[in-house]
Design a protein around this nucleic acid. Structure first.
Lengths: 237, 237
DNA sequence: TGAGACAGCTGGTCGGCCCAGGTGATGTGA
DNA sequence: TCACATCACCTGGGCCGACCAGCTGTCTCA
């Protein structure tokens, strides 16, 4: 067994996590007021500087709404949240998405990556193809190893699909994928576990062929098909 | 002419902006080390606490990578960046997007909001419609005011379109819109300036009609059309 | 020559300062 | 009795200088 690196969390990170848990578990409800920074300081024995920094971080993540000189209330994070908020929710659930989240994720994937696939299939240079081929080569190298490294393969698949977005010419799509990163990594790990490593790499190659052939609709429908396969596989469990 | 609120920037914000500029202008390159917090303290005459807070903020934005007791280096923000990074880049450019960014933004809008429109048109409850109608009513109230408040209207339009994503049933879409928020707000302000306040509210009502009628493709194509109108209008300038 | 101590560096944290603005109790005048 | 002005108190926001713990390169001593 592997233990891996042990990192000491900072007090601030622990406080952020604690409050996140209280919010997500429902102990703190939307609209509830948090104790004042000075009260939290007394409770937790953490300095006001760090308390303040933690609350600001939670506000950026969309969990809190801080009004100067009024206090902090739990925000409606379903409405005001960002991807950070969602990542935190999934992380707290042990990294597992609910069925609805999984379906939402797949819809978003088709919307974003499907558009990128179409764009790239319609218009691409040899350089674009070489860029993607290089990543596929990395995946092939991983397949041939004696000891499988699912994490490395998932990372490579992530880079490949981000590469499609990157090369589609749209400046927003790759950034959106970065925002999703923890979720997408979890998805690929699961996909590798369910369909096998080779099958996933094979599918990646198929996308490249369709892009090279300029078959925008074919690439799009291939993505739709694989998404549906994954979702139906999820429903069986 | 309006002068508007004048806000005194904090030292921390100024420092963040300064470092962002240095990174985006290329004076600080990806991989470069930053001076230590103490060195920055001496240079800038700002306390170490604030220096530290500024660096943490830049790390959250994806510009820096901080390792405890080792220092901070400039991160590869083009690859690892998030929407935050993009927001910062646009803000630094005076809030103006490049043509390519504008086109990318519109593509992303069609991909995400277009999908949400389709979903909502196909499947919606009376409650969904009432939710959107309430926001439209807010917009109407703003239109009837003597003194136009473009910012408030842009905010209402943002809430309306986020509402479409929210009610589409997809958990990801509204979060993505929140991520874009500063960019979208800039877009609506410009759209109000170009097409007028009433025209924008009218268009919002049109979407609601199409949703109510269950005309998924009609709603989608209406969005495509308005996007193309905006882009061609941008090209004329 | 090599192992260990140590000094000097790093980011992380602390507690306290003052500020501006919001809130609610108190007191005052009509 | 009630409306209104006053004021003490509390809030978050920004900032400071000191201290802590841990890494690293150097320097010493066996």
């Amino acid at each position: 067994m592997q233990i891996g690196v042990i990192e000491v969390p900072t007090r601030k990170a622990l406080l952020v996590q604690k409050i996140e848990e209280q919010i997500l578990s429902g102990q703190l409800r939307v609209g509830d007021s948090l104790p004042s920074e000075r009260q939290l300081q007394e409770e937790t024995h953490i300095s006001k500087t760090m308390i303040h920094a933690a609350l600001v971080e939670l506000e950026q993540k969309g969990f809190l709404e801080i009004t100067p000189r009024r206090g902090a209330v739990v925000a409606n994070y379903a409405e005001s949240g960002t991807m950070e908020t969602l990542n935190a929710r999934i992380r707290l659930n042990g990294g597992n998405m609910t069925k609805k989240q999984a379906r939402s994720f797949m819809e978003a994937r088709i919307a974003i990556e499907g558009t990128a696939l179409r764009l790239l299939a319609r218009q691409h240079t040899d350089e674009d193809l070489a860029y993607l081929e290089a990543i596929i080569a990395r995946a092939d190298a991983l397949l041939e190893r004696d000891i499988p490294d699912d994490n490395a393969l998932a990372d490579t698949l992530f880079c490949y699909h981000r590469g499609i977005c990157l090369r589609s010419g749209n400046e927003f799509f790759p950034l959106l994928l970065n925002e999703f990163r923890p979720i997408i990594m979890g998805f690929w790990l699961r996909s590798i576990a369910v369909f096998g490593a080779a099958s996933n790499v094979h599918l990646a190659k198929r996308y490249l062929e369709l892009i090279r052939a300029g078959d925008a609709e074919g690439a799009f429908h291939r993505l739709e098909r694989s998404v549906n396969e994954y979702l139906s596989c999820l429903n069986e469990q």
